[in-house]
Design a protein around this nucleic acid. Structure first.
Lengths: 235, 235
DNA sequence: CGCATTGTTGACTGATATCAAGAGCTGTGG
DNA sequence: CCACAGCTCTTGATATCAGTCAACAATGCG
């Protein structure tokens, strides 16, 4: 079903973290020059096509990841085989924090868009953080961010009518990119984020389009009527 | 509505962490004797009656808390005034982790049962963890546990039919106390945990009782038919 | 050019929300 | 001690929203 990542195809070389364009916002933002001397393990970069699985739920977490661009869904499968998306990760987000405390990956991570990833060994982070309070602080903030996000999904995306949930999702997507535009996900994914069926997600989006709350100007790229959607989100 | 905690009534003295009965399972499990020398701030113990609020969403988090006994709900209020319970905390769990990274409390914490609490200054934990990798590791594990729990609420308690959700909640409650018995919450709280109305929670519990899946042998104390409930939880 | 996937829409069904009423219990004040 | 107010739980009647099943168009891929 889901294809595993073909590193041979996707590998884009070893990363040069010192001169990374994202340097100021990623996990290693606060590392000193001296810390980099201690990084002997390779940090790899590669890209994922939409639908590609980065890792599976239950695998041993030897690596952690940073998203350079694009987006991935973190999925847990339910007893009936259906999927529930529990979080979306985007540029500068970290994947695989759970590996730091020795757990297996707790989700299956699947690219939603063309996505670029940095991969580094979990052990490297463990060793670096051992003597680096800055990195520690950064890790705690990452964890807290994920937790806040998880709570928001419970209150925003798993409560209320279908119209409310879809409206909240759209607003969130636009907010993520600081604009009134957003990139729509596949209806099946929207449903899996919102605890709705694919059909209901589709119907609701269609209905928003008919009402002029959402204009699709190119493939799944939309302009939103933020004010009206806000009204629907809370009504 | 919710009364704030009356410390004067509830205060039970300063804690003696060195000889705490929970010492091996709480946050400070791995502190050395020397570390305790550096604890100059007071650690207070007190108890909460059911319904008492420990802290409110949005307050500055000057303190963190350990649950010694009992249970609390972490609540976020929705735009329409209704509440959604995003987590339950129990013995040895930590409250207020978010304060460590400088955030306000992200929930309102309300006792569900008679509950005993230890309270300690956030700054104390920050200072201790600065030079204590063990404590760091412990904190990361706590965060990860909370996150795993949050994900489970999304997949287990916010997906599927009312019967499934209630069955999963009951199984979780029994599992928490390693028995086939569990203490039921108020129907309104069950609803707020499961994204259902009070009436639906009530009806579902009543129906389980009629079917013999659940026997209430004293006030809200129940014995469960674990096997049958498991079938319902996945069906 | 089929074939698979995705999105859309319709018809129907069923589960859950909503509104309403009443029973049981507890604590309070007369 | 009793009456009463305020909760919580339960149950019924009804309405509505979302799930299910099915068909079909549009698109992209091999």
């Amino acid at each position: 079903m889901a294809k595993s990542i073909g590193l041979s195809q996707a590998w884009a070389g070893e990363a040069d973290c010192r001169h990374c364009a994202l340097r100021t916002s990623v996990l290693f933002a606060n590392l000193e020059e001296a810390d980099f001397e201690h990084i002997h393990d390779p940090i790899d970069q590669f890209s994922l096509k939409p639908g590609t699985t980065l890792y599976h739920n239950g695998e041993q977490g030897a690596h952690m990841f940073t998203v350079r661009s694009g987006a991935l869904k973190l999925v847990q499968y339910l007893s009936d085989g259906s999927q529930r998306i529990v979080r979306i990760v985007r540029t500068t987000d970290i994947l695989g924090l759970e590996a730091l405390v020795g757990d297996c990956y707790q989700h299956t991570a699947i690219a939603l868009q063309p996505t670029e990833i940095c991969r580094f060994p979990t052990r490297m982070v463990q060793e670096l953080s051992h003597n680096n309070p800055q990195l520690h602080q950064e890790l705690m903030q990452r964890w807290q961010r994920a937790l806040t996000e998880a709570d928001a999904w419970l209150t925003q995306f798993s409560t209320g009518s279908a119209r409310q949930r879809v409206a909240r999702l759209l607003l969130r997507l636009a907010q993520d990119q600081n604009s009134e535009n957003c990139h729509l996900f596949r209806r099946e994914d929207m449903g899996a984020m919102l605890g709705l069926t694919t059909e209901t997600a589709s119907r609701t989006i269609s209905s928003f389009k008919r009402e002029g709350l959402l204009v699709e100007f190119s493939d799944n790229q939309c302009r939103l009527d933020i004010d009206q959607l806000r009204l629907i989100a809370v009504e």
